[in-house]
Design a protein around this nucleic acid. Sequence first.
DNA 1: CCAAAAGTGTTAGGAGTACACCCATGG
DNA 2: CCATGGGTGTACTCCTAACACTTTTGG
Lengths: 223, 223
Amino acid sequence: MSAIRVAVDVVILAIREGKLQVLLVKRRYAPFQGRWAIPGGFVKEEESLESAAQRELEEETGVRDVYLEQLYSFGDPGRDPRGRIVSVCYFALLSSGDIAPKAGTDAADAGWFAAFQPPPLAFDHARILDYALLRLRYKLEWTTAGFQLLPKKFTLTDIQKVYEAVLNKRLDKRNFRRKLALLDVLEPLHEYRSEGAQRPARLHRFSAKKFELLKDKGILFPF
Amino acid sequence: MSAIRVAVDVVILAIREGKLQVLLVKRRYAPFQGRWAIPGGFVKEEESLESAAQRELEEETGVRDVYLEQLYSFGDPGRDPRGRIVSVCYFALLSSGDIAPKAGTDAADAGWFAAFQPPPLAFDHARILDYALLRLRYKLEWTTAGFQLLPKKFTLTDIQKVYEAVLNKRLDKRNFRRKLALLDVLEPLHEYRSEGAQRPARLHRFSAKKFELLKDKGILFPF
DNA sequence: CCAAAAGTGTTAGGAGTACACCCATGG
DNA sequence: CCATGGGTGTACTCCTAACACTTTTGG
């Protein structure tokens, strides 16, 4: 019987203040006491890996029904000085509308950080975060996962800013909108959002039935 | 302390007789006694996940230095009636030149099967195989992983047959070759292979230094 | 009327696809 | 000389990328 323990870690990402940010928790105990870390915990005997990830996510953010995807499993001996721990890592994409609920929990030792300039992280968490960011960039270019980072109603500029924040580069407005239109997954609403002394922007929503069709075209990744 | 055990399973794939085949082992004991299964075993306390996968691979095939990539971790409670087992799955691509060594080991209860029409499999192994095949198809279209399925020297028709076997469709010879040329990863050799009463085909080899450049272009997947 | 973001088309280059014939060899 | 797989080019379509101005609003 092996003494290997199984944990899940969840890289929780959201767009805040126009930037891609990651939710980290401060470690209360050794090892790496006081360091920031990706939230996670041990898998319980009777729960699935995905349930464990969802549970961790909900404990940290108070949020359910969030985009969650398995990333990679890290299990080198020595990655955790407490013993042999295999960590099945997930990443979660929060819509900016879902972020508020979190504040209620244990805000003192949890915080949002710029995902591309994180503080020093505990264990091998820097590597995990790097891989999550890499995967997110790929997903954004080849799937419609980017909409998970937005609230239900959003403007075309909102979604463009998501892409710019994650891909870390400027995009051309006209080309971006043409590509969006080609995807045919947005439903323009008869609502507009006024943001100050400018022309109000039209709100759109992601259309789930068109989304399903993309799967058939093979545009979406399975996991 | 959790009683979860950690295993690795390795989906071993190769092109044989022009078809994509998978190496399966026959289970000696219950549960699923006599059923075919994806080879795997428990991770030892002191070895990394990848070492464990390599070890399993070598035990089954006698082969080292093979393309090996982590696929996904499966860990639903109940997936194994013997208890809670989390399986970190890998897939391995064997070059057709590497297949011969295998025969020496325990051939009686191991065999190659058409990957797209496998026999009934033990546990949730059908799902694992499906996912491996899906991943392989994506990799083939977006990376140069297909060359792992060939020996060092091969003809352009050889590589086309690999693509046709994995993607399960016919490809146009001229278009395929043009795309290959664009990738610029092949080095034509001054050697030819005669296959009978036809014009001999020129041999090529995969050029590793050009391969590295693809990484920079983002064409290759990181894992 | 001014500042600020919203919204909108055209063109040129590159990649993908469809398609058919001659070449070199062994028997 | 013939059967067999090896090898090659062109035309069309579609996607991508570069690029600038008018519209609408609040102040």
